[in-house]
């Protein structure tokens, strides 16, 4: 046990652990998505490879790996190859910060929240470089959309997070979770005495998360009926596979962040059994419930129009999140002011 806790081994373990977690999630969330879509559409989904289609991700992976890596003529070959790497790195980095349980965190940092956001913002760059380097008109249109969309949604997201920071007073993710212990009514989602609009804040965060990860109904980057495959039109084989996996890895990061910030992370909803592996269990339960919602949403709604997406951000989400920010500030300072004067 002592040997396991030495720093190099710990780092190695977590490195392997995170890579495995991201890889397994990315692979099996694809299957879960297809199965979920099948369920909603009253069909079985992939069910031929392995028992109930469990080997489908493996089959897909082999197929993608066996494909020739094509760099189409006219592309910027270096950036074209670099983009898939760049798109996969941020979610891997971000997951290092996510506390899976009170004792399972790859790297605890007192500015963990900021870390997640700063590395999360690189993701856009990767999609954009990939699209630009493809030298494909559809891909470039898609890149332009990705940027405006991500820039537009980063603002309400950060506003929401600032609201939350005012409530928690810390950027350490583990500490944020610890503050939410003792039952689901203590989760930030239900802290209506701090800010009566807390559930709305969560909804805004969730919508922004969908938009930032380019998920339906905000999947402007891959609007297949308009832009063929968007930014990755020219990618084939594992290049495409990595983009595809990164999408799911980003969803995992986004949903775990939502879990940590609003749903009490590894805290048990009933106030007991929240340490150690129990905590990890609760965390994963909440995480996958959110991911399931993301899948459910994708297979229910049509895609939003691009300008109504921006309108939603600038005209609805930003004003509301600004209002909640002000409201939270006022609610927090009201007792102080009251005590001061009376």
């Amino acid at each position: 046990m002592n040997f396991l806790q030495t720093e190099p081994i710990r780092i190695l373990l977590y490195l392997v652990g995170i890579c495995a977690f991201v890889g397994a999630n990315a692979a099996y969330l694809v299957l879960a998505e297809r199965k979920g879509a099948g369920r909603i559409q009253r069909r079985p989904g992939p069910n031929e490879a392995g028992f109930g289609g469990l080997l489908q991700p493996l089959a897909d992976g082999i197929k993608l790996l066996a494909k020739q890596v094509m760099v189409p003529p006219g592309t910027d070959a270096l950036l074209f190859r670099a983009a898939p790497l760049l798109v996969m790195a941020p979610p891997l980095m971000c997951l290092a910060m996510i506390p899976f349980s009170d004792s399972i965190t790859a790297r605890s940092l007192n500015v963990g929240l900021l870390f997640v956001f700063s590395f999360g913002s690189i993701n856009v760059m990767a999609l954009m470089l990939g699209g630009w380097a493809s030298r494909n008109k559809f891909a470039i249109i898609s890149s332009a959309r990705v940027v405006s969309q991500n820039v537009a949604y980063e603002i309400p997201m950060l506003l929401v997070v600032i609201t939350l920071l005012m409530v928690t007073g810390t950027m350490d993710l583990n500490e944020i979770i610890q503050q939410q212990g003792g039952g689901f009514w203590k989760w930030n989602l239900f802290k209506v005495w701090v800010n009566p609009l807390m559930p709305v804040t969560f909804v805004i965060f969730f919508i922004c998360m969908l938009a930032e990860t380019n998920r339906a109904p905000f999947d402007m980057a891959e609007a297949e009926s308009e832009l063929v495959a968007g930014a990755f039109t020219e990618y084939g084989g594992m290049g495409f596979g990595v983009f595809f996996m990164a999408e799911y890895a980003n969803i995992v990061v986004g949903c775990s962040l939502a879990t940590v910030l609003f749903l009490g992370g590894w805290q048990s909803p009933i106030g007991v059994l929240s340490g150690g592996l129990w905590g990890a269990g609760w965390f994963l339960l909440k995480l996958y419930a959110l991911i399931f919602t993301v899948i459910w949403i994708r297979w229910t709604f049509p895609r939003t129009q691009f300008y109504s997406l921006l309108n939603l951000s600038w005209k609805i989400l930003i004003p509301i999140s600004l209002f909640t920010l002000l409201l939270t500030g006022a609610m927090m300072k009201l007792p102080v002011v009251y005590n001061h004067f009376f």
């Binding site: 099948g38 909603i40 009253r42 459910w296 229910t300």
Partner: peptide
């Protein structure tokens, strides 16, 4: 209206699959 849509897809998801394999 979005919630209504999600309710309907959830209801459909609970119904059995109609695919003929």
């Amino acid at each position: 209206s979005l919630l209504t849509g999600m309710r309907i897809t959830a209801r459909e998801a609970a119904k059995p699959s109609i695919t003929v394999q």
